[in-house]
Amino acid sequence: MSPLLAIHDLSKAFGGVEAVRSVSFEVAAGEAVALIGPNGAGKTTCFNLIGGQLRPDAGGIEFRGRDIAGWPPHKVWRLGIGRTFQVAAIFPSMTVQENVQMAMVSHTGRALNLLTPLAGLEAEKADALLERVGLAAQARRACGLLAYGDLKRLELALALANDPALLLMDEPMAGVARGERAELMALIGRVVAEEGVSVLFTEHDMDVVFGHASRIVVLHRGEVVADGAPEAVRADARVREVYLGAEAGQGGQPC
């Protein structure tokens, strides 16, 4: 069976600095793949190339056998790739429910509808999705009033609004208080399992990475230095050198 997502020889440079150099890896259906590496390794650039926020200089991105390299983000989304951002991106001038309604209306191709008020569209479906991410009680609130952890939940709901096959999550735990992390990660794990979504995520929190990834791809200076099961990656000498340092064996936060 062909993989869900296949990246091959992907490259991107910014003003002479090669952020991503000939990167290749795959995500199979049902996998949770972590893309890790020190800051500046090219993780977010990779995400932006896949999500369409950036256009690759070279290389291919195949999703379900279709080359989507260079497609704009709105088309990438239509194929079934959901996305969350490092800094939660939501629509602050709308209520929580309106955010999700907007996503669902866009999914059904009615974003240009001028005649029907949004208030009556997809309201129940939106509430149901909000219920599942634990935001039902906040549905009518303005997003600007939510705690950051709740914004991350809302973002998850938005990313799931089109029943994606692949979820791209850029540092899902960034900015989330430690106490909330376990709960949020459990929620992501639960929802992802229920939906049968494959996940590609980046994360600095090694507990999260080793606790949830079925496979790990390690980037360093724009290149893949390791790709394999968590235990294999943990043991990889090159990975220890560039990223985990001497602390790898303890599985803690890298110092």
Partner: peptide
């Protein structure tokens, strides 16, 4: 108050998010 108006506001609030939700901003 229509989806179009909301899509327009979506593009203003967060172009990044709007495009990642399939809206051709």
């Amino acid at each position: 108050f229509s989806p179009f108006g909301f899509a327009l506001r979506a593009g203003r609030d967060s172009r990044l998010r709007a495009e990642a939700l399939g809206i051709d901003v």
